[in-house]
């Protein structure tokens, strides 16, 4: 009797182990909630070059000095909550917090002032949403789920000493994969894993000097728990 119980329990665990990877890929339609927290790296945004100029008698310009500006590459935190709405599509909400430096490098001063890179330590908050499409494929390991994603949201950038807020939007296009590492139900969770993604991050307005859009690479690495 005791032996039978053990066999039944083992069967149940095996069933669970088999069923959950299928969820991550093309298995049951049963929706689940995924909560993730990780690191987001955003590459630098070149903001262009501009010279400080004065007008000449002919109406031309004469440069006093030149500047090259960028929003520097930075790593920060990202949190997300997603819901699988079909077997291959998930919708996510995300928030992120980064502290990119706004840098203006000065050169070629007409009076020989030493070159300097002036810095403003900004803070950047985003909140947005994105859709993920898990790519179906029999070749994938059952624990491995590649996806492509697209999203957008609100961008809020706060200058040093919190003296000025500039807002804009962001758009994100990319892809990645999630790997289910633990599928044993524990408390209310049904599994846990890691996710990696790379994307093109388009930031519009905000601290952008020309009011336009700049694109930079971005990468994320996070741990997640499914419920």
């Amino acid at each position: 009797m005791r032996r039978i119980r053990k066999a039944a329990a083992l069967l149940a665990v095996l069933s669970t182990l088999r069923a959950i990877p299928a969820l991550a890929q093309s298995g049951p339609v049963r929706s689940h909630v995924e909560v993730g927290l990780g690191v987001l790296w955003a590459g630098s945004n070149p903001l262009g070059t501009r010279a400080a100029t004065e007008t000449t008698a002919s109406g031309g310009t004469s440069a006093l000095f030149s500047t090259t500006s960028e929003l520097a590459a930075v790593a920060g935190l990202e949190g997300r909550v997603g819901v699988r709405v079909t077997k291959s599509i998930a919708l996510e909400g995300q928030v992120s917090y980064l502290k990119p430096e706004l840098r203006v490098a000065v050169s070629a001063d007409s009076e020989g002032a030493a070159a300097v890179t002036a810095v403003d330590a900004t803070q950047q908050f985003t909140i947005g949403g994105r859709a993920l499409w898990y790519i179906p494929g029999r070749r994938w390991s059952p624990r491995f789920a590649p996806f492509v994603m697209a999203g957008s949201g609100y961008l809020r950038q706060l200058h040093e000493q919190e003296t000025l807020v500039q807002t804009g939007r962001f758009y994100q296009f990319g892809g990645g994969f999630s790997a289910l590492l633990v599928s044993r139900p524990h408390f209310h969770a049904t599994g846990a894993g890691v996710r990696f993604d790379v994307s093109a991050l388009v930031r519009s307005r905000g601290v952008a000097f020309d009011g336009g859009s700049q694109t930079s690479p971005a990468a994320g690495a996070s741990a997640f728990v499914r419920f």
Binding site: D109, G112, A113, A114, A118, E160, L164
Partner: peptide, 19 residues
């Protein structure tokens, strides 16, 4: 004295002073 740049960007607030 030599022409000199301030080493930080100074953010001018809307309707206020930088300090």
């Amino acid at each position: 004295f030599r022409a000199t740049f301030f080493e930080r960007l100074v953010v001018v607030p809307k309707g206020g002073d930088t300090g």
